[in-house]
């Protein structure tokens, strides 16, 4: 029962189905299973690190700096972006060209920045773990959305679908139906 409740909670907090964040990224990487897995993994990492960074931003900005909070979020996500690129370069130079595509795709992604902006102020002060957990939830939500999309991708692109609705229009309607189910469940 606990797992079911947690699963529903993750579905309810799913940024793709409930807030339409990261939908285009999902479509862009939906053409292959490998792309979806890699994109989901990198987005999860970005969401976790950027959320952790947001904790420190929230801790040290406030008052007169309130209006500049977005600038600080952008800077800390930029730092994560550079760190990830450097890390992937030093870990595997052979695969760097392939990996950097996913990093470029995920940095400043709506899902990542949406997580940072959502978590800001919604977690009790002083709770770094709460920020990290929020990033992990985003990643889990994106993985669930990826799985849901990958199951139907071929059918949504089949010749049975009218040509004008093939690919993105069909995918949008499909996500809309899943989103309706999530809305009802949560």
């Amino acid at each position: 029962m606990f797992l079911v409740t947690e699963f529903i909670a993750i579905l309810g907090a799913n940024l793709v189905f409930t807030k339409a964040l990261g939908t285009s990224t999902l479509f862009a990487s939906a053409d292959s299973w490998k792309n979806l897995v890699r994109t989901s993994f990198i987005i999860t990492l970005f969401a976790v690190c950027s959320s952790a960074g947001a904790y420190f931003t929230d801790l040290y900005t406030g008052g007169s700096l309130e209006n500049f909070r977005l600038v600080f979020y952008v800077l800390e996500t930029g730092l994560v972006y550079i760190l990830f690129l450097a890390l992937s370069f030093f870990v595997s130079r052979k695969n760097f060209d392939r990996t950097k595509k996913y990093i470029h795709l995920s940095a400043y992604n709506c899902a990542v920045m949406g997580t940072v902006l959502t978590v800001s102020g919604s977690v009790p002060e002083g709770s770094l773990w709460g920020y990290i957990l929020s990033g992990l939830e985003t990643g889990a939500g994106f993985i669930i959305a990826s799985l849901t999309m990958s199951v139907a991708y071929r059918r949504l692109n089949s010749v049975r679908v009218p040509q004008s609705f093939r690919e993105f229009p069909a995918m949008l309607i499909y996500i809309g139906i899943i989103s309706m189910a999530v809305y009802a469940v949560s």
Binding site: A20, I173, G176
Partner: peptide, 9 residues
Amino acid sequence: SFGGFIFLG
């Protein structure tokens, strides 16, 4: 939001 997805599709 689901209405938005379906309408946009």
